[in-house]
Design a protein around this nucleic acid. Structure first.
Length: 270
DNA sequence: CCTGAAACCTGTCTGC
DNA sequence: TGCAGACAGGTTTCAG
């Protein structure tokens, strides 16, 4: 499901609902959801701790817990994870993997049909975030940085933009949309990009992410609800449909084991 | 070091 | 209706 805009939307909602609350208890319903620590240690360590803040790093949700030692509860939703606030009498459902009882009587449920999502409880978040690349909405993400870094690698743009150790937060939707808006082919090799093309790509990345957030992310399948950015897709999952710019049918190919949707006319291979 | 493929999982949709 | 196959907002691990 979630890329940067979807996670940002979820985090903004959780900040209002959860900051200041205390976690009374946690039930681990699917053990492998926990990356660390083991379920009993997790349940013991989280009991009675209150939520100080909730933020986002790339596609990770990061909650700080007190009292000291300050501990990080980190959640990655991967493909099908979702966090929902339910009433106190909530009955666990099939795809629920983790349930937190809160001090206001409600329950926070981590639901994840495909079981790819992961949760960490650690006093050292750098262990989880250590290898992540630059954050798109940070001072480190500039046009000159992007151009310089693109030249450093000899890889298809699609593959590089999906690489979280390069740029952190983009996924399959927003890479396709950013490449289309910058009129660059997904297989275009990164070290052939001119400064002018890097400028287009840089602007397009920020533009699609901002537009995604402004629309509360994208909702496609049964997984994530409430977003509207799917109504603004120009290429993603639009194979065979006309390009909004020129009317040419959108094509699809596989890059980096993922679908890449593009307009062969607006995004020529050279 | 880099690349590609497989693995991790379940649900939905399409076509025969 | 049944069933096989394709496909899905992601990342890690392993082979070459």
């Amino acid at each position: 499901m979630p890329e940067l805009p979807e996670v940002e939307t979820i985090v903004r909602g959780l900040q209002i609902l959860l900051v200041g609350q205390t976690i009374l208890s946690a039930d681990v319903l699917w053990e492998r959801t926990l990356a660390t620590p083991s379920p009993p240690v997790f349940a013991r360590a989280i009991r009675g701790r209150s939520i100080v803040s909730i933020s986002r790093r790339a596609k990770f949700i990061h909650a700080l817990l007190s009292p000291p030692p300050v501990t990080s509860l980190i959640i990655h939703l991967r493909m099908s994870g979702d966090l929902r606030l339910e009433a106190g009498n909530y009955q666990t459902e099939t795809h629920d993997r983790l349930l937190f009882r809160l001090s206001d009587g409600k329950a926070l449920v981590f639901r994840d049909p495909r079981k790819f999502g992961r949760v960490w409880l650690t006093d050292d978040p750098t262990v989880v975030f250590g290898r992540l690349g630059v954050e798109p909405f940070s001072d480190g993400f500039t046009c000159s940085w992007l151009h310089e870094m693109l030249r450093r690698y000899h890889r298809p743009l699609k593959s590089l933009l999906l690489d979280q150790t390069f740029l952190a937060g983009l996924g399959n939707i927003y890479t396709d949309e950013a490449l289309h808006r910058s009129r660059l082919h997904p297989l275009r090799l990164s070290d052939t990009i001119s400064q002018e093309e890097a400028q287009r790509l840089y602007s397009a990345i920020l533009q699609v992410l901002q537009e995604g957030i402004a629309n509360n992310g994208a909702s496609i399948d049964w997984v994530y609800r409430g977003g509207g950015f799917q109504n603004h897709f120009r290429v993603y999952r639009r194979t065979g449909l006309p390009c909004p710019n020129c009317g040419t049918p959108i094509e699809r190919l596989i890059v980096h084991q993922r679908s890449a949707h593009f307009c062969p006319s607006c995004q020529p291979r050279n």
